[in-house]
Nucleic acid binder design. Structure first.
Length: 130
RNA sequence: GGCAGGGGGCGUUCGGUCGCUCCGGUCUAAGCGAAAGCCGGCCGGGGAGGAAAGUCCGGACUCCAAAGGGCGGAACGCCGGUGCCUAACAAGCCCGGGGAUUUCCUGUUAAAGGGAAGUCACGGAAAGUGCCACAGAGACGAUACCGCCACAACUUGGCCGAAAGGCCGGGAUGUGGUAAGGGUGAAAAGGUGGUGUAAGAGACCACCGGGCGGAAAGCAAUGACCGCCGCAUGGUAAACCCCGUUCGGAGCAAGAUCAAAUAGGAAACCUGAGGUGGCCCGCCUCGUGUUGUCGCGAAAGCGGCACGCGGUUUCGGGUUGAUCGCUUAGAUAAAUGACUGAUCCCGUUCGCGGGAAACAUAAUCCGGCUUAUGCCCUCUGCCUUUC
RNA sequence: GCGCCUGUAGCCUAAUGGACAAGGCAUCUGACUUCGGAUCAGAAGAUUACAGGUUCGACUCCUGUCAGGCGCG
């Protein structure tokens, strides 16, 4: 289980790499369609995780927030939370897999800790984390 | 103090760590690349709004070669403005003015007149067509149900009289006059008062309203005021329509460049093709060929027609990526978040907890409008409390 | 970016500018039944999305909002 200490800076310990650059993201329509075509997904209360195994897969992230989430403010907020949760936990994951995270409506009202726990739970289900 | 409305302003604190994006500088081990460079490190700087929204309007900009006339279509319609916008005009918006109209108060016998608040998509109803339900006698070049009045003939009652007859009535019928009154309606060819009359009526008179003409003033719309007209053509154009003005179309997924991939096929129809759009006309551009044929010519060649090229429709194949456009924000599955410190506010069991917001995220740019929303200032109206 | 459509009782639909906005399903009440269903009879339920305007009169016409939906590139 993730603890608050994992997301808080601890003095004296060198920080791991927590960057999430453009080349670590899924940026083309073809990437998303290939992910949906494999059809592997699992859901939690605040998000849905789609998995894409294949050559070149290197823990790249794509985020999706559809119109049912709300207006542009709410969609941007949902995508920011998904990106932040992935960025802070990415070095704990492993495997040759790309991931598309789809926001659900309850991500707007859930606490930050709940979103984090849901991501860890789905990653454990996908065997990306011990 | 509270509520509602109008106007104006601001839209919310200062740091740290990690992370995102763009720009500039600098360094670069490995990897990729012909190179520039990509990736990566460090330093410095920039990084959503008043509405970014809705997309209701207008413009810039781009392409359709240029963008003419008519029909059709759309939008707009009082006047002015050194306002916004623009090279400039029209339209739109804004500001001011004029006029009309609704509600309330005042005023009047009733009107007129005066005041406050609001609304106006404010050219034309004597160019034409349509519609005006129900009610009502009558609803548009208006009508006559009840009623009122006159006359004619009939019938009947009372009184007077010796009688003939006379006087006072009643009933119903017919002819004519009338539009004052009743009643219907949103609306009945002006309103109130009087004169007049058989009864009445702008028939006539006074005031008010209306129409026409002139006109002080005003840039103008308009219009103080004066004269004339007894008053004539009800409403509806946010019904069709008429008049005037303006408008070519599509839109940054516009469009330009580069690279890659695929295709460069089939069928039917047309015979100059295209610009050309909803349609037509005119105009403009291109008009090729070892082709055929006809005519002219000594020849070069010119002209006509046909065919090919070509055009339209359908089917089939294909429909990817990058750069520019693009910005002192400039992304492209789309950038502001997580944690934490200070400061301020609220609550507190004095350990601390909560909050720093609401509405709402640029996508080529600019302007207007509308809508959403927190706080502050100011004005108006109403209610409550105190003096 | 451009273009278009819809909003009527809880739901689905009607209504030429003209009286209290009509019908079906659903709801409620009563009858029938031992009880329920079906059936029969009756009742209730609408500020016609909102605001304004035109008109004597608006669900209808016009304007502006709000909400929802569709199409094209």
């Amino acid at each position: 289980m993730v603890t608050p200490a994992d997301t808080v800076d601890v003095p004296g310990i060198p920080l791991p790499d927590r960057r999430l650059r453009r080349h670590q993201r899924l940026t083309s329509t073809a990437d998303f369609e290939a992910t949906y075509a494999q059809g592997k997904s699992c859901a939690a209360r605040t998000l849905v995780m789609w998995l894409h195994h294949g050559p070149g897969a290197s823990l790249r992230l794509g985020v999706v927030a559809s119109r049912v989430i709300g207006n542009a403010i709410k969609r941007a907020r949902a995508k920011r939370r998904l990106r932040e949760a992935w960025r802070l936990n990415r070095n704990r994951f492993h495997g040759e897999v790309d991931v598309v995270l789809v926001a659900r409506r309850s991500i707007l009202t859930a606490s930050w800790q709940d979103v984090n726990d849901d991501l860890i739970k789905l990653a454990r289900k996908a065997k990306m984390i011990e």
